[in-house]
């Protein structure tokens, strides 16, 4: 079982307490009605799906309940860093 560090609780907790929330930094457009069909479909459905470092959303559902972001390596499953929602994606090496 993975250990995930909640940036709000500042603790490593077992993955059972968390729920995955999809790719991070996919911001909802401020004015969706101004978006073209193409750009809206891109926002809804297109994700990067990288082999390697992936910025993704997690929620500490059985803990503080907060959403936060993590950089995880999709090959090793290793969490490189977690950070609070709203913070920019940190520069990290694999």
């Amino acid at each position: 079982m993975l250990l995930i560090r909640c940036p709000y609780c500042e603790m490593d907790r077992p993955e059972l307490e968390f729920r995955y929330g999809g790719e991070a930094h996919v911001a909802r457009p401020v004015n969706p009605m101004a978006e073209s069909d193409e750009s809206w479909a891109e926002f809804l459905y297109m994700r990067t799906n990288p082999k390697g470092l992936h910025a993704e959303r997690w929620r500490h559902t059985s803990g503080c309940g907060r959403f936060f972001n993590a950089i995880r390596h999709t090959v090793t499953d290793r969490f490189v860093v977690t950070y609070k929602a709203g913070e920019p994606r940190p520069e990290v090496k694999p």
Binding site: R19, G21, R28, R57, R59, T61, G65, R66, F67, A85
Partner: peptide, 10 residues
């Protein structure tokens, strides 16, 4: 969870 997601992140 859906409500919390939008409230916290959007």
């Amino acid at each position: 969870a859906h409500m919390e997601d939008y409230l916290q992140t959007e």
